[in-house]
């Protein structure tokens, strides 16, 4: 759990927050807080597919799976 979380969190911080966590919490909504946009979601999906060796289906591209660190970790735990 924490290894997954750390990998995801580090990716978000490095790629979208320019290396500074800016108070990013595990529950922070990426869209509501303006952390990522649709371009960012595609980058996130590529990262998840490459790092965790899974295929994110088009139907799985929903906020419940991908809009916060907590949601991504939950999604990955169900998927892996």
């Amino acid at each position: 759990m924490s290894e997954l979380r750390d990998k995801v969190r580090n990716f978000i911080i490095e790629n979208f927050l320019f290396g500074s966590d800016n108070g990013l919490k595990d529950e922070t909504s990426f869209l509501d807080e303006g952390v990522i946009d649709s371009t960012g979601v595609l980058e996130l999906v590529s990262f998840i597919e490459e790092t965790f060796g899974i295929a994110v289906e088009d139907e799985e591209l929903i906020p419940e799976n991908l809009d916060s660190i907590k949601n991504i970790v939950g999604y990955l735990e169900r998927k892996i």
Binding site: L31, I36, S38, V41, D58, E59, I62
Partner: peptide, 9 residues
């Protein structure tokens, strides 16, 4: 709908 980043929605 401001969630086009998630097109399924």
């Amino acid at each position: 709908n401001n969630k086009f980043a998630f097109p399924a929605t």
